[in-house]
Amino acid sequence: MTRTLTHLERLEAEAIHIMREVVAEAVKPVMLYSVGKDSAVMLHLARKAFYPSPPPFPLLHVDTTWKFQEMYKLRDRMARESGMELLVYQNPEAQERGINPFDHGPLHTDMWKTEGLKQALDKYGFDAAFGGARRDEEKSRAKERIFSFRTASHGWDPKNQRPELWNLYNARKSKGESIRVFPISNWTELDIWQYIHLNDIPIVPLYFSAKRPTVERDGLLLMVDDDRFPLREGEVPVERSIRFRTLGCYPLTGAVESEATTLSEVIQEMLLTTTSERQGRIIDKDGGDASMEKKKQEGYF
């Protein structure tokens, strides 16, 4: 008797297959964990892939020190529950120079995230890193392989990618090279939400609407998450019912006004919305049309 697998069952099977290939072929894999919804799904898939063993690699959080407080809480809880080692890395140079999103603009992302990630991978000697990027997020990601090779200096060459046929992944690499692996490449935003819904996966409460202190700045609705937020002249935080479609550094992440307090309502809102999820992220817009492609070449995830 035949049974037609649903699209989520097939996406799940594909992601699990990818993770097992990496564990079988890489020397020292790691999972990049950013605490967002995509990371939440990726972590859940990892637990499924290796059950009853715990996933045989640590979680790495490249911290910018500017994430939402609720993200740090969930991060520590999930590490405990999954039985995985959690490594937190903060770029010491960015720390020392006090790099922050308010005063340093694009340098903030560059130092904390891009440089921080490179330093962390080099420090621990990881040769394969799982990331939660999806092809539907952004144009250059639509063309990235599932196994994406980086030079010893972490550069990406979009014109020199390895062909990826069937489900045969070539994980062999030269000394110094590393691989970024994207097991949920083929998932869409809706798939992610639906999977969270079906599997009851814990996510940061910021995805649900609540009254939160906000200011409106440069067309974005920003949440005043802690007292490091420098208010400009005339700015007074206002309580609004808001939630986030995507989570990053709180000063760089725009909220949407919303009344969606349950997962179903969040999905409903997503389906009826007319803007893409990365729209609330300032980072994609630095440097024009091909900014993400450029960032990736420089070593951004």
Partner: peptide, 8 residues
């Protein structure tokens, strides 16, 4: 290069 797109 091959680009992957999604719709339902």
């Amino acid at each position: 290069d091959v680009a992957y797109r999604f719709f339902a």
